[in-house]
Design a protein around this nucleic acid. Structure first.
Lengths: 141, 141
DNA sequence: CTAGGGCTTCCACTGCGCTGGAAGGTCAAG
DNA sequence: CTTGACCTTCCAGCGCAGTGGAAGCCCTAG
């Protein structure tokens, strides 16, 4: 099938599918004489795997690595399990960070009612946010 | 004081301080005849505010907006409170998403032990990650 | 024959908060 | 006078997962 139909069947855009090919998570398909990409059914399965792995929080780089392991040394189960463990640990850390941040924000919120706007110095901008907020900046990852 | 000393006193780099100026969260300071930036004590307070606001999860754009409100219409308390509320709601959403994702990963992990590697098809890459993973991809924001 | 929809490539851009480096000016100590 | 630390500007790039657009080819229907 051509890329448009693959896109329709997977819910991705043609742009994204070409991007996945360049990112190494989808093998380059056969080409028709016209130069059009010509996909087989495996491509649908592969894209389903990519979506599922993304939903499990894996990056395209990690997904590519899994695929490489699979291609070179058979079942990547151990590798995948290690990745999942590492991601679970990441998630625990991030959840803890965000929860702490949530508590700090709540603390600021509830403290705000006790403040007198007149005591707010210009250089400090706003005393609702004091200089001793506890939580560290949240890493985006 | 010059930018290097301000950096030393705030724990930021000179690069970051110049970047903050260009981002509109730190006013352009006076200049010496040499062209060197010459900061006063207020700059220390301002940078402390920026750090605290960042620690509270605010973006530089939001911090700049708070500063603008402060400069134009006095105390930005209401604005800041609204921002904090909105961020608290964001945090609740993100924590819920990550918690759901964490549960999904755990589910995959524990299910993995029951699988037979021999039933793993090449196109699907790895059956540890099946196509019906529930959670949606986590938005980075 | 022409219009259109689909396909190709390539390059640039998004958001965010910096960080690195190049090329050059300034200033105090030795 | 020279060295070296410090400062200036500007331009580029990171990571991530795409998205947008331009220029041009392929194919089919009317």
């Amino acid at each position: 099938m051509r890329i448009g139909q693959l896109a329709a069947r997977t819910g991705l855009t043609t742009k994204t599918i070409r991007f996945y090919e360049s990112a190494g998570v989808l093998p380059a398909p056969a080409r028709r004489p016209s130069g059009y990409r010509d996909y087989d059914e495996d491509a649908v399965d592969r894209l389903a795997f990519v979506k599922a792995a993304q939903a499990a929080g894996l990056s395209l780089a990690e997904i590519r690595e899994i695929i490489t392991v699979r291609a070179s040394s058979g079942a990547p189960c151990q590798h995948v399990l290690a990745l999942l463990d590492s991601h679970a640990a990441d998630l625990d850390r991030r959840i803890a960070e965000l929860t702490a941040l949530r508590a700090d924000v709540e603390r600021l919120r509830s403290r705000a009612g006790t403040l007198d706007p007149a005591t707010c110095s210009p250089a400090a901008v706003c005393q609702v946010i004091p200089a001793d907020v506890v939580a560290q900046p949240v890493p985006t990852t």
